[in-house]
Design a protein around this nucleic acid. Structure first.
Lengths: 202, 202
DNA sequence: GGACTGACAGATTTCAATATCTGTCAGTCC
DNA sequence: GGACTGACAGATATTGAAATCTGTCAGTCC
């Protein structure tokens, strides 16, 4: 029978079916049809439809994680690295939203379907922010008592530039100005910041 | 005949109907029924259903605007004022969300229905933030080249603590820590911040 | 004997008929 | 004569019957 049915082939077919029909209409039967097998065979590799969708989503997010890793520049200042990293994430999401709105909407639905996927994604990216900030603390460019809490704060404060719920605002002609203003404020804060639970000013 | 039908009476009845049936089910016929008149009479005071809903929403937002005005303390530092103001807004929205989830959801829908209402609301509140920051600049507690842009940046950076799209995250046990971390970072930034379009550091 | 099929039960979705709602306006009532 | 009514047309929402989908599993095929 031609080739053996692999998990990878099912994932690729699922991605294609999602791209074509969207998250609401894509069915397991469609995926099986695209592969020329019965839908029972798909259930041999993935226990449920939700697990199949989650696997596709995770693959997509992992590609973002890898891409974001490559933005970091060892020789740049921490502030420049942070700004470039946040800008790259913003640009990538915004481009995805404007150039392939259906696909963006599809992944938006997939991510929100799962309880574990969003945490996985956020934790990974906040980890990258933490590494940038830690480098800044090491060179005394930044000051903070708690790198991880501060990284989370930077993530939260730039939320509207990466959270899909705000995608419609990304079309605003002044959105880049808003981004620059927020990042400048954050970078200024990173140069001298204490988490409130810690002792007061020096 | 009893009393003449007033716009105010219609607004109150509409609010009550919205509270009881929710935004999806509340109809103009329901409002008329609650007032003991025909629905044609309601259209004598409001041109469309959308206009009626918008009037109710605007009344509700105005109450928030008035309440937020009262938080400002002439004698406090700008940093304390800003923190207290943001905290009050966050607490109010969070309380509304947890104590009256249906009503909160109702107004969330009403606000998102209108194109002009959200801008009106945001502009008003950002204006209040700008006043706090301007006071801080006057006392040399804060530094900024553009008070309005910086106020907008503070608003944007605290977005997840007031935007209803993030309401579900407000139940997180660590949300107050996240809030404190973001506000501390912003306040630290306000003590020395330049918008990127302006000249470099002193 | 392990990968695959296809029929099945229960859950979910679709679709078209039916009911309700919005907005209008000629007419009623004090 | 100005506030209100109620019947109306077109738009929207509801409903329930029919179709489809999900997940299972006994059985087929190499």
């Amino acid at each position: 029978m031609a080739e053996a049915l692999t998990g990878e082939a099912i994932l690729a077919a699922t991605e294609e079916v999602l791209r074509r029909y969207g998250p609401a209409k894509a069915t397991v039967v469609d995926v099986a049809k695209a592969l020329g097998v019965s839908h029972g065979s798909v259930y041999r590799h993935f226990p449920t439809k939700a697990a199949l969708r989650e696997a596709v989503t995770r693959r997509w997010l992992d590609a973002i994680h890898v891409e974001m890793e490559s933005v970091l520049d060892e020789n740049a200042s921490a502030a420049d690295n942070l700004r470039a990293w946040l800008q790259h994430l913003f640009d990538r999401k915004r481009r995805s939203h404007t150039e392939e709105p259906e696909l963006f909407a599809t992944f938006r639905v997939l991510v929100s379907e799962s309880c574990t996927i969003p945490d996985y994604h956020v934790e990974h990216l906040v980890g990258q922010v933490a590494r940038i900030i830690r480098a800044g603390v090491d060179t005394q460019e930044f000051v903070t008592d708690d790198v991880n809490a501060t990284a989370k704060a930077v993530w939260d404060a730039t939320d509207m530039f990466h959270h899909p719920a705000h995608a419609q605002e990304w079309g605003d002609p002044h959105i880049q100005d808003a981004f620059d203003a927020v990042v400048s404020l954050l970078v200024a804060g990173l140069r001298y910041n204490r988490i409130p639970s810690a002792a007061g000013d020096a």
